[in-house]
Design a binder for these strands. Sequence first.
DNA 1: GCAGTTATCAAGGACTCCATCTAAAGGCGT
DNA 2: ACGCCTTTAGATGGAGTCCTTGATAACTGC
Lengths: 367, 367
Amino acid sequence: MTAHLAGGDLNRLRQLNADSVIRVLRDEPPQTLTELSRRVGLSRASTEDVVQELLEVGWVAEVEPAAGGVGRPARRYRFRADAGHLLGVDIGGHKVLAVVTDLDGTVLHSRQVPVTPELGRSERLAATDRVIGRALRAAGLTGDRLWGAGVATTGLVDGTGRVMLSEALTEWTGVDLAGHLRDRVGGAVRVENDCKVAALAETWRGVARHASDMVFILAGWRTGAGLIIGGKLHRGFGNAAGEIGALPAAGWQRAPGHLRARPDQGDVFAAARAGDKTAMAALRRYVKDLAQGVSALVLTLDPELVVIGGGFSRSADVFLEPLRAELDRWCLRTPEIRVSTLADEGVALGAAKLALDMSSPQLRTRR
Amino acid sequence: MTAHLAGGDLNRLRQLNADSVIRVLRDEPPQTLTELSRRVGLSRASTEDVVQELLEVGWVAEVEPAAGGVGRPARRYRFRADAGHLLGVDIGGHKVLAVVTDLDGTVLHSRQVPVTPELGRSERLAATDRVIGRALRAAGLTGDRLWGAGVATTGLVDGTGRVMLSEALTEWTGVDLAGHLRDRVGGAVRVENDCKVAALAETWRGVARHASDMVFILAGWRTGAGLIIGGKLHRGFGNAAGEIGALPAAGWQRAPGHLRARPDQGDVFAAARAGDKTAMAALRRYVKDLAQGVSALVLTLDPELVVIGGGFSRSADVFLEPLRAELDRWCLRTPEIRVSTLADEGVALGAAKLALDMSSPQLRTRR
DNA sequence: GCAGTTATCAAGGACTCCATCTAAAGGCGT
DNA sequence: ACGCCTTTAGATGGAGTCCTTGATAACTGC
């Protein structure tokens, strides 16, 4: 029924504790053992034991002790983000982007190539290979040195890493992305929908770091959503969670059209910001439609936070307030709204997080 | 961030394992140690140890071994549902219902009194007290012998057991239900929205027993929803999850009205079943509106299952197929739809489950 | 009655966590 | 410079949990 944390083995207990230590160390500045033990809830002795093990495996490193203070100086430990590398790939309609990150989600190297939605399947795959190759070369890595790789793309993705349905990209439905990538990077590959991993990225390195219930809105020429529920990415039974846009009443199919239908093809956001009346009216209609779907998500889930990402998020200043006002009309409790700061790399970063989540459990301890 | 299963203590490991054993024993017919150990993933010896402990505390009991079969007959153990009792209370507009159940969710005693939505606060509370008293007397229990009590009512409920907002009941907003009940039954009381606990009941004793992602629809003169996500009840950050009905576009505010607006005030479902044209048309309009909101929930969450409960569920035969067809129009993947079989007691049963979830952890083991 | 099968029970070992104690390292006052 | 105080490091022994192994017990079928 639930993915219940079956107790089991003693080993498992140690793993859980090692997990806790790593989590604390990753979120906080370097800690002493005493601080750590208080944080994790273990005794000092056990904490020391765990840390010792993590040191040996390379997950944590020691930093020189802080000067000053009374008593014997305590050793301090930090998370070793450089212990491994992750590859995150974003295969979109207009660009393919690959990033190599450390375990903390810092982007070390980033490469992209422009593509078009009309590109054929094999050309898009070739572009992907090319970008991955460049990113890896820039990092001085080979595929098999990676801890894992994550791939994000538009459309519905099934559990085995195959694209079930993609409306935006030609010849993309049915492509076996996991299979294609597996040969190019060593071993572990996971594939997921781009909105979903963008949500993941926000909880990892973005503006939703401490939210356990969050709705991510991809606002761009496509509109989509990704959901974090109970601190975890919610995929849905058929991997189709967050697809509220399929409902006409949600307004998402129509929403971006309001912005496109302008006589001059300039930046509607800039025009609206400058006071252009027709641009402002178009934006109002966009927000009104967008808000329908967002309201549905918010009323359904009652999240702590809504994060706006996607291409339009860089212009969010002009529509954030109207959006908030529109949500106030419908929602019982309008959540806080934040704008993503991850820019173009959000999706690729989330893909890297996918890779991390997949790879960590095995490597956490000696055994 | 997440409510992470902090490892901690060795004791905790044993608790997790005891949990697993109990879960298996509750879901399955009496098991032998060998079967159990395979199920739980522990060695036979450890399983025996756990079971021994659970025997002493009273959570499990031995049944006489099965006859027949080769080899030494194995001892068999069953979950002792009669080890404790739970109280579940459903405070609605038209009735107040209290049930006393065993730990398995079997209703042992059930009492109810009719009320009206217009009843004042103190009268409704008095009716509640009366019903609880009767149910407890019938069970031969006093409040302090209960393992816990759960209360469900319409409206939004906050974390402390206070009704934040109730539109259907007069003088109900602001009432401190947990406080009121705490004096009458011993100790632990939890209060929750009725749709939410009805969903809980379906995963416990209803038709959603093995679904970890489920949407429960309360279909009646009010329409509401409760969500099970990842095997757990999803409350939302402000306890307002599932309130999609607040969105006009979802159609739920209007939906039941189609059924009420008939010239003769008979049973519209019976009439539709008999072929009455206007009744069928009204039902069609009802389903069309209902499906908008349900589609929004389904597209958002992509659940494994949708369960229809509430007053109309007993007439679901006449609108289940139309509903399914309507969902097919909007949803990418229409989930399985089942009809609740818990009848009037669903909400009260879910309230009892609330009580169980709250009370079990402490009492699980000796220490 | 005997072989075959399966379960119970006990003993020993490994691992994890904890409490406690001593040694070490630095600041501070005299 | 010296001892005192505070805090941490590191080591030891004990308790709890799980696992493996092997001896013993109970029942069936021939």
